[in-house]
């Protein structure tokens, strides 16, 4: 049985035709199930838990990148024993072509065509990031160093980063970051159990490019500790204050993906 989490923006804009089309297609495919409008209240995890106990084994998020980030952080608050009870999988039906980079990377077709991806149920175990044992992220976190910042990596070594650098920590590389990754020939995947930490120095960028020398610092890490940063941007949606420990939760979620996924 599928449980559908609708993002609230679908009810504030004119998406009724698209939603009607999707619901009809889901019924045709025999994938219909209860639906809930997602909010960030404490009731949501309880509601999801109830549905999982009744027999739901798939949670489908209908919305965009922001909806997925919110849903993952809601689902993470559900009792882990209940989540494993039915080997819960997470799916997505992306609505609108903007703010849907996650769907593109996971090979999920947009709107009504996304129903077919759900029906095929091709599962991939995807890593998640966890900040301060509290906030989960799927794609990336980033911050600007307005002072000297230190990152202690896997307890082995420490990176000391100068003021002015931009730091991105990548789990699932979306389009903008993917361009950088392709250019730098970095292997990045959300199923390898490691993050790519990319440090881009703001000052020497063009100078180094002319010299054809590496202008970035790139390292891989399973877990790390940041000192000297007041807040970080999480999945381009949330802000995490005073980030301290960040770790990679390998194969944390079973995600329904398309065959055209980018990893």
């Amino acid at each position: 049985m599928h449980l559908y989490l609708y993002d609230s923006f679908l009810y504030t804009r004119n998406f009724s035709k698209i939603i009607d089309g999707i619901e009809t297609r889901l019924t045709d495919l025999g994938l219909n199930g209860p639906s809930v409008v997602m909010d960030l209240s404490n009731k949501m995890p309880i509601l999801i838990e109830k549905e999982l106990k009744i027999g739901a084994n798939t949670i489908v998020v209908i919305g965009n990148d922001h909806s997925i980030t919110n849903a993952i952080n809601i689902i993470s608050r559900v009792n882990p024993n209940t989540l494993t009870l039915n080997d819960t999988a997470i799916g997505m039906i992306p609505i609108g072509k903007n703010d849907n980079e996650i769907a593109k990377m996971l090979g999920i077709d947009f709107e009504i065509n996304g129903c077919e991806i759900l029906a095929k149920r091709r599962l991939e175990k995807i890593d998640l990031g966890l900040i301060n044992n509290n906030i989960h992220f799927l794609t990336n976190i980033n911050f600007y160093c307005d002072k000297e910042v230190s990152i202690e990596i896997d307890g082995d070594y420490e990176l000391i980063i100068n003021t002015g650098a931009n730091v991105s920590i990548i789990n699932l590389a979306t389009e903008g970051i993917r361009d950088v990754i392709m250019k730098e020939k970095i292997n990045s995947s959300p199923v390898d159990g490691v993050f790519e930490i990319i440090i881009k120095d703001a000052f020497n960028h063009s100078f180094n490019w002319l010299k054809k020398k590496p202008r970035l610092t790139i390292v891989k890490a399973k877990k790390f500790k940041i000192t000297g940063v007041d807040f970080i941007n999480v999945d381009n949606l949330l802000k995490a204050e005073k980030p301290s420990t960040i770790k990679n939760l390998r194969s944390k979620i079973d995600f329904i993906v398309g065959k055209n996924r980018g990893f």
Partner: peptide, 8 residues
């Protein structure tokens, strides 16, 4: 890669 402005 350890870039020019990073200290390890």
């Amino acid at each position: 890669v350890v870039g020019p402005n990073t200290h390890v």
